[in-house]
């Protein structure tokens, strides 16, 4: 009973539950959609399974975000070390400028250059995801107070220990905010990527919009929305965990 109550007030658990129910139980809702849209011959999107679409969607958005974290984190670390400082200015400029480009336009422009399909979409999403991650990694590492660095060096931490034990943990909340931005954008852009040949949860939406089938649109949209809410709650949880040491931490 108590566990049930805590489950119902926990946004992450609740979101996951709703998401799972929607992904797995969508076929069961077929009569509901049939009743709501009596004019439609096919009230349920059945060309692909929703589970498969969800997994492909997550693979695209998650894969791109993960690669972006690795590359962007490495670049952010590199330009804040003495050997990479020369590249700092140009990287900042590119990250700031690139983020004004609308992600959907970046995705579209990638098609003439890279072609149709999931792999070009992955590259476009990764490139776009890099920008906030690089920016926040640099900002996070630079926000580490100089006295803290000095104390760490003074007690005999080498560059590696300084980075892993002090700088990265202190920068983590800021870096995480960048990862969050990248992941949220990628989740949405992955839906649009079904217009460039990647099968994702955007597919029922696009097919429904083009074929005047609102039931398809709603089926795709609720799952994407549920995914977004779960992602948001998950990042909230992670952020709370990474900032326990902060003055205003709960």
């Amino acid at each position: 009973m108590r566990r049930l109550r805590s489950l119902l007030t926990d946004r992450l658990a609740l979101g996951l539950l709703v998401l799972a129910a929607l992904v797995l139980g969508m076929p069961a809702l077929k009569p509901l959609f049939a009743a709501a849209f009596p004019a439609l011959d096919r009230p349920l999107y059945e060309a692909d399974g929703f589970l498969a679409l969800t997994l492909d969607h997550l693979a695209l958005a998650g894969g791109a975000s993960l690669i972006a974290v690795l590359l962007g984190g490495a670049a952010g670390i590199a330009v804040t070390r003495p050997f990479g400082r020369e590249f700092r200015g140009i990287l900042d400029a590119v990250a700031a400028m690139g983020q004004t480009f609308p992600p959907v336009a970046v995705l579209a422009v990638s098609v003439p250059v890279l072609g149709f399909g999931p792999a070009p979409a992955l590259i476009a999403l990764t490139l776009y995801g890099l920008l906030p991650i690089v920016e926040n990694t640099v900002a996070g590492l630079e926000s580490v107070p100089e006295p803290v660095r000095e104390a760490a060096r003074g007690m005999g931490m080498g560059p590696g220990a300084l980075l892993w034990r002090v700088e990265l943990p202190l920068a983590a909340p800021v870096i995480l905010a960048g990862v969050r931005t990248a992941a949220v954008v990628n989740l949405g852009t992955a839906a649009i990527a079904s217009t460039v040949g990647a099968k994702t949860l955007g597919l029922p939406i696009i097919v429904g919009l083009n074929g005047s089938n609102p039931a398809y649109v709603i089926q795709g949209a609720v799952i994407v929305a549920a995914l977004a809410v779960v992602l948001d709650a998950g990042f909230d949880r992670l952020a709370a965990r990474l900032t326990r040491w902060r003055p205003n931490a709960v």
Partner: peptide
Amino acid sequence: VVQTIPSIALFGLLLA
């Protein structure tokens, strides 16, 4: 939360 929901999904949700 609104900001988190992808645009294409929000358009879809407003459709009904």
